[in-house]
Design a binder for these strands. Sequence first.
DNA 1: ACCTGAACACCGTTCAAGT
DNA 2: ACCTGAACACCGTTCAAGT
Lengths: 231, 231
Amino acid sequence: MPHDGRVPSASIGGRVGRPPLTSREEILAAARRVIDSDGWQRLTIRRLAAELGVGAATVYHHVQDREDLLIQLLDSYADESMRTRLPSAPRERIVAATIAIHDTLAHWPWAAEVVAADGFLGRLSGSAVAMVEAIVAGAVECGATPAQATTVFRSLWYYTVGEILVRTRSDSSEADREARAPAFTDFDPEATPTLAAIGPRWLEFSARDTFAVGVDAFVDGLLSRIADDAG
Amino acid sequence: MPHDGRVPSASIGGRVGRPPLTSREEILAAARRVIDSDGWQRLTIRRLAAELGVGAATVYHHVQDREDLLIQLLDSYADESMRTRLPSAPRERIVAATIAIHDTLAHWPWAAEVVAADGFLGRLSGSAVAMVEAIVAGAVECGATPAQATTVFRSLWYYTVGEILVRTRSDSSEADREARAPAFTDFDPEATPTLAAIGPRWLEFSARDTFAVGVDAFVDGLLSRIADDAG
DNA sequence: ACCTGAACACCGTTCAAGT
DNA sequence: ACCTGAACACCGTTCAAGT
């Protein structure tokens, strides 16, 4: 990078040099094809390059690294699928936006890998960032200070990320579950009477989707604290 | 495995064959040494075998696979560090147990990798499982049905796992953060006025530890729902 | 300006053969 | 009964050299 004001001769009169074989857009499209056909576990830089018919090193001219690729991919998915109309009442808007974020992430199991990447939130765009705005603005409308509104968002974000992560990891076959977690059905009634009493029903209870109920409860608790501070 | 009642001749008269060079206990101890000296990212089967002075394949005679190793390791840590005396009031016991689980996991950044593994909860032992019992039993004492008590635990567990995961991933250097998330400080004031108004203070707000406040709020919300159902 | 092959520095896991 | 070397089937990433 010349800092002396010289213009690289190649840039005079438009583009020169070897024409591009691929682009950021083509790479993202190819990544979606690989995930659809082979599953997200198979989305490696090498497999992606093969899908595009280029060398693996070429990919690095269009994305920084694997994490950057996954974040861009999730952001492009998120921007498409979070175009929900939100309620105007602030409390209901917070709940609806949180559920919209959750439902989007739940559709892509690999989201859990990238959702917590450093700076992920800061690289969102379009409708995804609109959901974040909806939650934070909703909290402010409910009387929160900027710091409190940020805490409301972060708390709901942790809950969402945790649910997605555990859900993803628990989506293995019944046979795997049996082999991996045989102990959960026979707890010691002396040391852990309540768990022992629940017994095998734990698995049944855990299979229920209680995310929305949890969001509702959490928002109640978070907003009641703001009222306490104000009053 | 003979199903015909024959006893393998080797088992008559005690142990025979090549004596063990290592054991499950030695492997766990070596794993801790590797993490302490080289960091948890360096804890690979090959590095671990080198630490023990055995071949990599030998490790597989004592642990099922890498995930099994990490779960056993975390469980042994957890059993040691979750020996907290809990309050007797059920609501406070739920809060204290959740915070105890969180604080234990927060000390080992690699916990996030394994905490959501399929069946992880079912393989806990000792004081770790006592914390789960404390939360579920506390909820029952507050009037929850077994299904509701399970939901209380799972909701708090998701929140805890999410916080640990995001915390771990955000613990990179300030320089990394600058490079990765430059966008978070200049949001479009038209599209996202609240985020734009918060601006660079977002990073300051996000650095605050609000986990305990969140648990308190979440438990309030979850228990109020049980009261609603009962009344 | 962009692309490439080859290399670097690794992984987890399996298995026939040895002790 | 346990251990091993070697192999299998991969990774992400870099870089000098080519077009």
